[in-house]
Nucleic acid binder design. Sequence first.
DNA 1: TTTTGTTTTAAGCATACGCTTAATTTATAC
DNA 2: GTATAAATTAAGCGTATGCTTAAAACAAAA
Lengths: 224, 224
Amino acid sequence: MVMETTKPAAKDASSAETRRRILNAAEVLFVAHGFDGTSMRMLTSQAGVNLASVNYHFGSKEELIRAVFRRRLSELNRARLEALAQVEQDADGAPLRPSRIVDAYFGTALRMAADVQGGGHLFMRLLGRTQTEPHEFVRRFLAEEHGPCVERFLAALYRALPDVPKAEILWRFQFMIGAMSYAIAGPYELQQVAGPFDDDNPERLVGRLMSFLLGGLRAPLGSC
Amino acid sequence: MVMETTKPAAKDASSAETRRRILNAAEVLFVAHGFDGTSMRMLTSQAGVNLASVNYHFGSKEELIRAVFRRRLSELNRARLEALAQVEQDADGAPLRPSRIVDAYFGTALRMAADVQGGGHLFMRLLGRTQTEPHEFVRRFLAEEHGPCVERFLAALYRALPDVPKAEILWRFQFMIGAMSYAIAGPYELQQVAGPFDDDNPERLVGRLMSFLLGGLRAPLGSC
DNA sequence: TTTTGTTTTAAGCATACGCTTAATTTATAC
DNA sequence: GTATAAATTAAGCGTATGCTTAAAACAAAA
């Protein structure tokens, strides 16, 4: 199975290329038709590879799904933690501003989502729908992948907002994730009603969402 | 096909009962496994009816999906419009307070979602995932069903917030829908990280979300 | 009771699914 | 070159899918 005596050389290049094509096709089709709605035959023909390639390279459809997420998610969460570290460094011991924490988490994601040609946009749309994903293995896998990153951000928010009950912060974090997901998914339904938006510049979307999220995060606690 | 000479009597009761059982089973299984993940055989056996019943009563699986949404959505949007009418009546000609409008739309939905035993909770979870639904006929159908209601609420918000650009209101409405969806879906992932919430009382959830939404809606416009 | 229309039932059809397999091709190592 | 491992290919396996159908069961009308 594995070449043990010598280095893989160009052989792996071919293998890696096939894997890349499969992952890219999977990203496109999973967003468009869902996991169940994307058959191996659709997928492999879109990728221009043989039907058996997915099972050869990834083992199963389920493992392919995991690989699709893994590829992008590790980079996203790395960027998030790096941004958070930068915020902490800038603060230089002083308490962190909540707005900086929120930007490190959600701003980083939105900027990845703005990367249309690199595929980040597609992936973020895929990621946004997984909270309510029917397949449990997907939810479980994502919870594991996100876990360490989310943990650190929550801890940062607890410290930055010592007067706010933790349960409240957790819920508001949940709300913010929802708002972000729908920001990325785009206002399909509203456009049907209100006509096309006069402004759907992705640059401005970051500012719009950030403003909204911070307003929500800083809202008074009691009932309104 | 249709009994024309006499009134249907008890015959329809049986028919309606079968339909009701199918719709209820569909709601449960669609939430748990998605549309594609729910087969006609799963569905009919859960409902305790014959496999052919769905096609007999609804025509196809696709039409069944539409019927599942129709049943609850007409009631939800009726309640929303009624709540908005009440707000307008209370205002008695004066400008509406945005918080009242938001409550009429999102509070009504959340209160329906709090109705666990009546099935409203299940349905609202189903509804929350449809924004990013792969099947286009579902998104189109929902846009049509929601259209008139959303249109009226947007118009109300435009009037209540004359200084805010319409595009901004539309986006914030989109963000609010996302936050609500995730509020209803529940913080599954965060619970994995932060442990079980010390408070997930659905009563308080309404207050929590309302506070967050209003904070977001009233946030300053410029970049932060 | 007979008739008429509605609903339920069991069996089956055509097709699509994920995945496997044996053979072949391709590329490198010796 | 020959040997060896990796990757690709075409064919096919067993099973599940949505849906149809013809017959049976049922209920109300005449």
